[in-house]
């Protein structure tokens, strides 16, 4: 009973192992150290975006502007370096500050003006991506600064540095969400907003805070993304946004708020990345890749739904 619950709670990790073995069977390189690095590097930007979306999912809302925010904030940072020659450390801060500003606006719209987060952030995302398209005329903003692009391309003894950012972000998110008073307030607000309010929690501020955190993380993802690619262009795929929303759900974060563990968010991120890289490395015809990827995610969600159902069956 207890072991069954343990298995179901960690089903995302089991799926990661199963998919890895499957991919490794089709291309042995998949199980090599080199590809582990590859998976972790690819998971970094997505993983930080997943955290961004998760902060808003925990309060029962959603932030669909994260990808638009990523492109926007990294453009602002790159612009500051190119036009005003600011030092790269300042540019990183500017990038993240731009993300926070967007998050602040989203939060104000949702928490104080009571706008529907789904629509408000969707519109914000469209606006930001459109703004970047207009400002850059679809040209890539190349970032050559070595400091700025260090984390995205540097290696220490053959190991890329980038995944460190992923793990640090998740560790901090875990501490904040599981142990800080603010984090607990987020869970309470998402679990039952009226009860949280009646218990003396400033619910509006908590909701605003979740969006600011989301914006902060989207800005951070923007920095990592630009650092990794050596530039920023408006063509970040719309699939990225879908993955950023699917991953937390696969990892057990409730779309209705109040439930979800950081370790699950990490699992969801890694599972999606493993599926993606697996499909890149085994020579499947591109015509079927999208289909297989979609089916895999569907399978993961189905297993998760099964987990929730069997949990509910035990308790009445």
């Amino acid at each position: 009973m207890a072991s069954k619950k343990f298995l179901l709670d960690n089903v995302v990790w089991i799926l990661i192992v199963v998919f890895s073995i499957l991919a490794g069977f089709l291309n042995p390189f998949f199980l090599s150290e080199g590809n582990l690095q590859n998976v972790l590097v690819q998971a970094t930007t997505l993983g930080v975006l997943v955290l961004a979306v998760s902060f808003t999912l925990l309060i029962g809302e959603i932030d669909l502007s994260v990808v638009g925010n990523l492109v926007f904030s990294s453009m602002v940072g790159a612009y500051a370096m190119q036009q005003f020659g600011v030092h790269w450390t300042l540019a990183v801060l500017i990038t993240i500050a731009a993300g926070v500003l967007v998050g602040l606006l989203n939060g104000y719209f949702v928490a104080y003006l009571r706008m529907n987060s789904l629509i408000a952030t969707l519109a914000m995302g469209l606006f930001l991506q459109g703004a970047v398209l207009g400002a850059t005329q679809a040209r890539t903003m190349v970032v050559t600064d070595e400091g700025y692009s260090y984390i995205g391309s540097a290696t220490i003894g053959n190991w890329p540095v980038m995944p460190i950012a992923l793990f640090v972000a998740y560790l901090l998110a875990h501490i904040v969400l599981a142990y800080s008073a603010w984090g607990r307030n987020l869970y309470a607000t998402g679990g039952n907003r009226r009860a949280a309010n009646a218990a003396g929690i400033n619910v509006k501020r908590a909701r605003l805070g979740a969006f600011i955190a989301s914006g902060f993380l989207a800005g951070l993802a923007g920095f990592l993304y630009t650092s990794y690619l050596g530039g920023v262009s408006v063509t970040v795929g719309s699939t990225t946004l879908l993955y950023a929303v699917a991953a937390p759900v696969i990892g057990g974060v409730s779309l209705f708020g109040g439930r979800g563990r950081v370790i699950g968010m990490l699992g969801g991120t890694l599972l999606i990345t493993v599926i993606q890289t697996g499909l890149q490395l085994i020579n499947v015809s591109a015509y079927y890749i999208q289909m297989i990827g979609g089916a895999m995610i569907l399978l993961a969600i189905a297993v998760d739904a099964f987990r929730i159902r069997s949990e509910e069956r035990g308790i009445v």
Binding site: Y187, G190, N192, A195, A198, S254, G258
Partner: peptide, 12 residues
């Protein structure tokens, strides 16, 4: 509706 947070523990 207004008292408890169902997704949290007794202690919380």
């Amino acid at each position: 509706g207004e008292g408890l947070v169902g997704s949290m523990s007794v202690t919380e």
